[in-house]
């Protein structure tokens, strides 16, 4: 028995066409969750099967791919997915944000500004922003159709009443093109402003939940808030310990069991560049 040869980027062409149709529909209706016939992939659900299928469908042999997880290229799952596409598509890969034409990401948007030449593919665990307020899909689809988002505002208000502030720190809901409330995937809310008016095409793939949605280039994305409690992003009291950046998202590294902490950029490419290594 010899190992079979795989089609370019693993998926067969029919599947890719099906996914591309879903992507086109998603771009035509920004923020709307398009159902698609998600396939079993050779990595587990939850590892980014939605993102991998979207990437496989948009990838061409000329593309240069960057894969990040938690902002970094060297995290285990990013390495695994990058290797998968090297093996099955033979595309060039890079760790430099500006060199990439397709960037697959889990939980971050790169710090460096994106361009019109780029596609950012998000891995999405739960595409439905209303899911934790209403578990039933039949209900939430109706709520979207009727633009019935009152429960979400009530939830945010209850946070303020209980904690004095909105207690959602990641997967922070936003409204796309003044119509659909959407889940930007579990990126920190720090990254939400980057979604707005972004020159790059942003695609979101949820494999297990079988949904694809999109934010087309230069589309308005407004994070939900209240006039007297405007949307705010996280900030840190100290700069990155490696590059000194004061305006990037920082990961906390536990140095010992005596409470010593170090804060470093989660975006490893951005940090290396700041340090002048690239």
């Amino acid at each position: 028995m010899n190992a079979p040869a795989y089609n370019f980027a693993y998926l067969n062409e029919q599947t890719k066409r099906m996914i591309r149709r879903a992507i086109l529909k998603a771009i035509a209706v920004p923020g709307y969750q398009v159902p698609f016939a998600s396939r079993e992939m050779p990595m587990p659900y939850g590892w980014g099967t939605g993102g991998v299928q979207v990437t496989a469908a948009v990838l061409t042999p000329e593309d240069t791919l960057k894969v990040i997880d938690q902002g970094a290229d060297d995290t285990t799952n990013a390495v695994s997915i990058r290797k998968f596409f090297v093996k099955t598509a033979g595309v060039a890969t890079t760790e430099r944000t500006e060199e990439a034409s397709v960037i697959q990401t889990r939980h971050r948007i790169p710090e460096a500004p994106l361009t019109e030449e780029q596609i950012l593919v998000f891995q999405v665990p739960i595409p439905e922003p209303l899911r934790f307020l209403e578990p039933r899909e039949t209900e939430t689809r109706t709520m979207h159709a009727l633009e019935e988002y009152g429960v979400m505002h009530v939830k945010l208000y209850e946070d303020i009443a209980q904690y004095g502030e909105i207690a959602t720190t990641y997967a922070y809901p936003a409204k796309v093109a003044d119509r659909y409330v959407f889940d930007p995937s579990p990126i920190p809310k720090f990254d939400n402003p980057k979604l707005d008016n972004c020159p790059a095409l942003q695609l979101f793939g949820a494999g297990r939940e079988k949904r694809i949605y999109a934010v087309p280039p230069y589309t308005k994305v407004k994070s939900l808030d209240f006039e007297d409690h405007p949307f705010e992003v996280q900030s840190w009291s100290e700069p990155c310990a490696l590059c000194g950046s004061c305006h990037s998202f920082l990961d906390e590294i536990v140095m010992d069991d005596k409470g010593t902490r170090m804060f470093v950029c989660s975006d490893s490419d951005f940090c290396a560049r700041q340090r002048g290594e690239r």
Partner: peptide, 23 residues
């Protein structure tokens, strides 16, 4: 956390294998 005292130790895990049958 990205790193912790004592380190992240992957050990024997299926987690990052590709589920391709190994003939």
């Amino acid at each position: 956390f990205k790193d912790i005292p004592g380190g992240q130790i992957l050990g024997p895990t299926f987690d990052y294998t590709h589920r391709l049958l190994d003939f």
